[in-house]
Amino acid sequence: MLAVAAMLGLSRAALADALRPYAIVDDAIPLSLTGADGDPARGRAVVLLRQNTCLLCHSGPFPEQRFQGDLAPNLQGTGSRWSGGQLRLRMVDASRLNPATIMPSYYRIDGLQRVAEPLRGRPILSAEQIEDVVAYLATLRDQPGKHE
C-alpha cells in the first residue's frame, strides 16, 4: 500500500488525513486549515513538482521550468489579485468559485467519479501542502523588480 502510494506520489500527510473542517465566508476560507501559517518556500516546491499538476495548466515566474501550460492564467501577480482566504478557497475547491472551472479541487473527496483506485478517498494535496501553497501564492505580487 505504501509502495503504491509512493509511486503515485502521495505524501504520507495526504494519506493520514481525513479532511479537516473549514468554513467558507463569501468567496474565501479565511482561516488556515491547519491553524498555522504555511511556508512559502515549501509551497513553491509543491507548485513546481510536476505530479502536483499546476504547471500542466499554468505558467508563472519560474524561468527555469521548461514546460508550462497555457490553459490557465499566469500565476505572476496572483497574490495582488486575491487575498489569502480567497486563494485558500481557490486551492481547496475552485469549483465553488466557478462551477464550470477545469481547475481541480485539491482538497475535496466527494462528488468525484471513477477516481483511480489507489487515490480514492484522498485529497490531491494535504492540508499542510494547501497552506504552504497559499503562503507561496500570496508572495506572487505585481511589483516590478520585486518578483517573489
Binding site: 477545469i102 484522498r122 490531491i124
Partner: peptide
C-alpha cells in the same frame, strides 16, 4: 462526463482547449 481525481472530462481538453 467528468472523471477521476482531477475531475476533468475529455471534452474539457479536446473540445474546449
Amino acid at each position: 462526463r467528468r472523471q477521476g481525481q482531477l475531475n476533468l472530462a475529455c471534452t474539457n481538453c479536446h473540445d474546449d482547449n
